[in-house]
């Protein structure tokens, strides 16, 4: 479904990613792990078109998307829930969700909205409220919900548990598990390696802009490298 082949990208003149290869098959949940600064966020930004892919290829459902602007990539079915939530703070929860479906505007949002509000009941209570007034955990729910409103074929989620209370972290991972059961194709970036491996089928470990390690969650859970990552994080 999603495929990266030797992707190089970065900021200014410097490449942060030095040839990243990874694959996410349809219906699969894949975790992207690594220390702070390993290039996880940069990888997601390159996939969704926020930064330019300097070399290599990104394919979505077999089609090259690495030269497309972000809006064209969303329209082809890829949603990116960014690090730090990035909700539209001056818009209401309802308007945030409506904007999540901007790429599909003109078509009915009813079913998608019902599903998303069922997945995140708290958003129903906050529906008319400005997103900026929500708690951090609620904003994270909203950010994921907004990403789902586009009915993506692939969902990228960047550090959804960052800065949340343990209870909220638990809620977020419960939601991710439900998305997995619903058959969502998911690429999940997390610092919390063991939590992430709990929902993921497979994982990649990024280091210095390259994939250092890949394998099934079962195998990686017992790997000393991941253990080090976990302790060192």
């Amino acid at each position: 479904m999603l495929e990266l082949e030797g992707v190089r990208a970065g900021y200014g003149g410097v490449d942060v990613l030095e040839g990243v290869h990874l694959r996410v098959s349809e219906g699969e949940v894949v975790a992207l792990l690594g220390r702070n600064g390993a290039g996880k966020t940069t990888t997601l930004r390159a996939i969704s078109g926020l930064i330019r892919v300097r070399a290599g290829a990104v394919r979505l459902g077999g089609e090259r998307i690495d030269r497309l602007p972000p809006e064209a990539i969303v329209r082809r079915g890829l949603s990116h829930v960014p690090e730090g939530r990035q909700v539209f703070g001056d818009l209401t929860v309802a308007e945030n969700l409506r904007m999540g479906a901007y790429a599909r505007r003109g078509r009915s949002l009813r079913d998608q909205l019902d599903w998303v509000l069922e997945l995140f009941p708290v958003l129903r209570q906050r529906y008319g409220q400005l997103a900026g007034t929500l708690s951090g955990g609620e904003q994270q729910m909203l950010a994921i919900a907004r990403g789902l409103m586009a009915r993506p074929r692939v969902l990228l989620v960047d550090e959804p548990s960052l800065g949340l209370s343990p209870r909220m972290v638990h809620t977020v991972f419960t939601v991710l598990a439900r998305l997995r059961e619903a058959g969502t194709t998911l690429l999940l970036v997390e610092q919390n390696a063991f939590r992430a491996l709990g929902v993921a089928d497979r994982a990649y470990v990024l280091k210095g802009g390259r994939v250092e390690l890949e394998g099934s969650s079962e195998v990686l859970k017992t790997s000393p490298e991941v253990e080090r990552l976990y302790l060192g994080a």
């Binding site: 969704s48 926020l50 972000p70 960014p82 539209f88 818009l91 308007e95 904007m99 901007y102 907004r146």
Partner: peptide, 22 residues
């Protein structure tokens, strides 16, 4: 849609790009 999208752009430009607002 367009009016709300304009407010979305000024609220958070990166997020606006990510939801597909040109």
């Amino acid at each position: 849609d367009l009016g709300v999208a304009m407010r979305a752009v000024l609220s958070n430009r990166t997020a606006a790009e990510l939801v597909g607002i040109p």
